[in-house]
């Protein structure tokens, strides 16, 4: 039995242990949104995920050199048309696509390719400051995303898949607004804390941490 315990210890020593958390991680996006006219209507947003390079790490490693990554929010239902507006029940998907360049005049160019991550926008509040100060064109949004599917969902530990923050600036008066859309959105989707990547680490290195 003692020999068995020793073998178990050896297996533990040779095992893979998680390393330290990375720096700040988020999906930074820029897109165009259309808002519903009344309660019960749905919101949609089509955007492109920025390559933050060394400056801004994405929660999952993305290959921006060879692929375009787009983000689509759809069917987000306006529950309360008040200040703030409250939404629920929408879907969110991040696509990877090597074959097309996203074009706001053809929303299908945002939702083609492989769904890297998909999930639900379980809640969203939009603050349109023009409701309070008529001259204001800006706004902000804050919501919650739970990832439930996609080709790379399994790269996120189950405990890290829910409760991501969705934060955005909105602007109906921006010169960047594309025809046919109501607002420019500049935002991000991010885990509450950086996802801890799995790194191989020797037992000695683990001990050295303490």
């Amino acid at each position: 039995m003692k020999r068995m315990s020793t073998i178990l210890v050896v297996i533990l020593l040779a095992g893979t242990l998680p390393g330290l958390a990375a720096a700040q991680q988020l999906f930074d996006f820029f897109g165009m949104a259309n808002l519903p006219a009344a309660e019960g209507g749905s919101l949609s947003m089509f955007g492109v995920i920025r390559d933050g390079g060394a400056a801004v790490a994405t929660p999952l490693p993305l290959d921006f050199a060879n692929y375009e990554y787009t983000i689509v929010v759809e069917d987000l239902v306006l529950v309360t048309d008040d200040y703030p507006e409250t939404y629920a029940g929408g879907t969110i998907t991040i696509y990877r696509d090597a074959s097309s360049t996203a074009d706001y005049a053809a929303t299908g160019t945002f939702s083609d390719g492989t769904a890297v991550l998909s999930g639900v926008v379980s809640s969203l509040e939009l603050f349109h400051y023009s409701d309070l100060v008529p001259s204001a064109t800006g706004g902000s949004g804050i919501g919650t995303v739970d990832w439930t599917g996609g080709a790379r969902l399994d790269e996120i530990a189950p405990g890290d898949q829910d409760g991501w923050g969705f934060f955005t600036a909105t602007n109906s008066g921006s010169g960047l607004l594309e025809p046919g859309y109501d607002e420019v959105w500049d935002g991000k989707v991010e885990p509450a804390t950086p996802i801890v990547g799995t790194e191989r680490m020797s037992w000695g290195a683990v001990k050295a941490m303490y």
Partner: peptide, 9 residues
């Protein structure tokens, strides 16, 4: 936009 105390890192 800015976030403070709202779950953002």
């Amino acid at each position: 936009t800015f976030t403070s105390g709202t779950g953002a890192q």
